[in-house]
Design a protein around this nucleic acid. Structure first.
Lengths: 94, 94
DNA sequence: ACCATATGCAAGTATCCACTTGCATGTCAA
DNA sequence: TTGACATGCAAGTGGATACTTGCATATGGT
């Protein structure tokens, strides 16, 4: 298991989440193509695959295998921990 | 500069934020003492000092020097990026 | 069956990062 | 001023991690 914070520590993984937020249910190959063209991401298939594993272990990505394709889905629910752990407080007026 | 996500990637730094959320305006020594006793944190002064630098560079901690003391304040506003970047979406009913 | 496609696995490498160690600087109290 | 206290600085070390490389597995189309 990987904690959500560590999963979010890498910018490539954050861009992957951005891309899945824009278009859910993508295969590894789709993601590679769209990340390269739309986000200027020059990562290899293996690199992205490993990032997806980390995201899945952190619960931020859910997957579903159909035939030889594996589809990836965004799951934002683990972000709730971050949203609630340090509640927004009124800024100290100086 | 350190990005907010990287700053949050370390559990020790997250506990420091917890402690500052509970009691704001602490010196390095106060933080060391309270982290050790209340959070079971066994980190050295230098380690915590370096963590505070990272948190400050990420904008999560603000500091104020008075005499030989340096006080640390929590600033949760950088968390807004995380709150808003991947908005909560309705879970896909399966 | 065959081949192209889509993905998985695992070892190696290079960089990053948390932590230590040792010393330096600066402030207050007597 | 002297000494104790609070913090700062910087080089070194071990472990984690992002990425590569090369091969393996599996599915579908013809």
């Amino acid at each position: 298991m990987v904690d959500v914070f560590k999963a979010l520590a890498d910018e490539t993984r954050r861009v992957i989440l951005d891309e899945l937020a824009e278009r859910d249910e993508q295969t590894l190959f789709e993601l590679c193509a769209r990340l390269a063209s739309k986000h200027g991401l020059a990562s290899s298939r293996q690199a992205i695959s490993q990032h997806l594993e980390v995201l899945e272990e952190a619960g931020l990505v859910r997957t579903e295998k159909r035939g030889r394709y594996k589809f990836h889905f965004l799951d934002t629910s683990p972000l709730e921990e971050i949203r609630s752990r340090w509640p927004a407080r009124p800024a100290k007026e100086q």
